[in-house]
Nucleic acid binder design. Structure first.
Length: 350
DNA sequence: AATTCTATCAACCGCCAAGTC
DNA sequence: CGACTTGGCGGTTGATAGAAT
């Protein structure tokens, strides 16, 4: 049932995933999220293409994947949805928590298709014509199709309503991966709290488990040190951007990227975080007798492609110590600490 | 016991839409 | 505005387990 491992022309491994590879991928995505699937294998130490990693994670390693036999309710749902929507497996999967589109597709082809054939004779001319089309034509037809089925409309609109493109959220790809994976990276309790219907409602993260008063009291709120990106992300869920930015005289950058607030597009977000780095570098330059461009390079340099290799030695280690004594864990706490070389010192919290 | 057939499902492939440069 | 990149989707493949002969 598994493919024999082989390598493609670029030396990337193909075929069955080993336990070691699974461990590496799980460890990396759990800790850092999938900030870029294409780059991810390089930093996770995997000789796989990004697509393969994504597929493995989405279909097998992701938390809360339900495996094993399908209940009658699940099968009925699949059949009903397939009747109304055809092979739109991702939409069908969205209605079955824990099931992946690939798994549903396989189950359909191996079990349910036969049952449906037995139960009903296909008389619909439209269906007949559609089934005779080449895959590409089917896809084009499907994309042009205006759903006229109530159930299909209802489900599609539900999904669109919670999608990043229809609500004012950060980037579709960026934010969805951040929000999903941030939840994964959080402690178990927090993850359960934030996940709920997480996979179908990815933008409803509830961060009420940390008090904003508590954060505002922390020493780093008064510091001039500001991480270019992770600091922003760190405060993002708590809606504390404005306070922090104002405290750093960065009021020209008014942002609030909290998941429940009006959002930014990914381009807006990245330009703002770059701007934040630039502004921070100006402060650094004043303090450290370096040019702002040098400081900027130090901060932002390879930050996006290599988010955890930035040299942040300008942050004093004792700066975060009081915070490390808290029981509160931010969704990006690990990343935050890792960036400053403090990872591992707070393991007791988990 | 050996061989053939069938079912299963993880993984690959190509295409497309959206985002970015 | 066009080229390029990325993530996501659905169709398909192919190795293997288990059943049938």
């Amino acid at each position: 049932m598994v493919r024999t491992p082989s390598c493609d022309k670029n030396g990337l491994k193909k075929g069955t995933w080993t336990e070691e590879e699974d461990r590496k991928l799980t460890a990396y995505v759990t800790r850092y999220g999938c900030w870029n699937w294409r780059q991810l294998p390089k930093f996770a130490g995997l000789s796989r293409c990004g697509k393969s990693c994504r597929l493995r994670w989405m279909n097998y390693l992701r938390p809360n994947i339900k495996r094993g036999n399908y209940s009658k309710e699940e099968e009925d749902t699949i059949i009903k949805l397939h009747e109304s929507m055809g092979n739109r497996w991702s939409i069908i999967a969205a209605q079955l928590p824990g099931r992946t589109d690939n798994e549903i597709k396989n189950h359909w082809h191996t079990n349910l298709k036969k049952r449906e054939r037995q139960n009903s004779s296909i008389s619909n001319e439209e269906k007949h014509n559609t089934n005779n089309l080449a895959p590409r034509e089917k896809r084009q037809k499907r994309l042009k199709l205006q759903p006229n089925n109530c159930l299909a409309n209802q489900i599609t609109s539900q999904i669109i309503d919670s999608s990043p493109s229809s609500s004012p959220q950060p980037s579709s790809s960026g934010s969805s991966s951040i929000s999903k994976d941030t939840a994964v990276a959080t402690s178990t309790e927090a993850y359960e709290e934030t996940s709920g219907n997480f996979w179908t409602e990815p933008f409803l993260t509830d961060c009420s488990f940390v008090s904003s008063d508590f954060l505002l009291e922390q020493p780093f709120m008064n510091t001039e040190y500001l991480s270019p990106v992770l600091f922003d992300e760190f405060f993002c869920p708590y809606g504390l951007y404005e306070e922090k930015l104002n405290s750093n005289n960065l009021s020209q950058i008014i942002i609030d990227s909290s998941p429940s607030s009006p959002q930014l597009s990914s381009s807006e977000f990245s330009s703002i975080t770059r701007d934040t780095a630039a502004a921070t570098s100006t402060n650094m330059a004043a303090d450290d007798n370096v040019t702002s461009s040098e400081a900027y390079a130090e901060i932002s340099g390879d930050f996006w492609p290599q988010p955890f290799s930035a040299d942040n030695s300008y942050i004093p280690n004792d700066f975060l110590e009081p915070f490390m004594e808290t029981e509160y864990l931010s969704p990006v706490f690990d990343e935050f600490m890792c960036l400053y070389g403090l990872d591992g010192e707070h393991e007791g919290f988990n």
